[in-house]
Design a protein around this nucleic acid. Structure first.
Lengths: 151, 151
DNA sequence: TTGAATTAGCACCTCGCCGATGCTATATTC
DNA sequence: GAATATAGCATCGGCGAGGTGCTAATTCAA
């Protein structure tokens, strides 16, 4: 639970790939084959990321995609939002305009506290950049990965 | 996206209520009526929290529930895990025993970095306690809530 | 000029899970 | 014994994630 969707997983893989190759135009097919990701799904995600402006596309033979924002400015939160839509820890963290209040909003005794947690979560997600993920520095982070997860 | 389920929302409301009333046995009905939460669903959640040992139940007339762990030791991450199951930012953060690896695990170029993010997310969720949420201190936290969310 | 390669934009479908409901059994109080 | 509450299932509807397919538009290269 609290799991990213596969679209986001594929998006992460693609965007990190594009970050590593720099300004070289890379086709969805190349990325899919190199990482063993299903091509049609990867294309869906890249189309979406093109619409949000995070990548630019080049059509036609020898076409493909190029990262359109700096990997250091492109955050995990930004990617999730582009692919999955707005992050909301609870339903009532959306704006009034989005009509994302639940019936309890007026009397809810925990809303204010939860909103604080939500804001901190968003900050957390916006502190992780694509550059961090693409060029992972084993020395960095300053904490050990639990043994069960260490592959 | 990245949204807690309603079960968790109801669980949060219930657990915070129990934290506030201390050791007084409180029925699901009382909690539901006070917070305008659907009773049957709240009961489902409380049953689950009883099974996980986070609350104790008293059967029969004048029965109800009591918090079974200290609000300062009971974390948001613990509640989510109790109600929704294990938190996994991506599928491959589960243990090998749980067989939660995807086909890319061996060659995945971003797994290590994402696992780091996952671990930090878990730490974040385990730093937020039920006490923090139940006895929200408006002065605390040290940052402002964005205007659009401030009700 | 034609064909292959590649992205753009839909429409659609399926399956799992969240959310919700209902019923029966068990325990306790009055 | 009646009323109150929890325990434990079993089930069911609806929505969204995940996945598939088709057509159009664009570009390169032989």
């Amino acid at each position: 639970m609290l799991t990213l969707t596969r679209k986001t997983e594929y998006g992460l893989i693609a965007v990190c790939h594009l970050a590593r190759v720099g300004q070289k135009v890379t086709s969805a097919r190349d990325i899919a084959e190199e990482h063993g990701v299903p091509l049609p799904l990867l294309m869906n995600v890249l189309k979406k990321l093109n619409r949000t402006g995070h990548v630019s596309s080049v059509r036609g033979a020898r076409g493909g995609y190029v990262l359109n924002v700096s990997p250091k400015k492109f955050t995990l939160g930004g990617l999730i939002e582009a692919v999955e839509g707005p992050v909301n820890l609870v339903r009532c963290t959306g704006t009034i305009k989005e009509n994302r209040r639940c019936g309890l909003t007026q009397s809810c005794t925990i809303r204010k506290a939860v909103v604080k947690v939500h804001v901190r979560l968003r900050q957390f997600l916006d502190e992780v950049t694509i550059a961090d993920l693409a060029f992972d520095d084993p020395q960095a982070a300053g904490f050990a990965i639990p043994q069960v997860l260490a592959q």
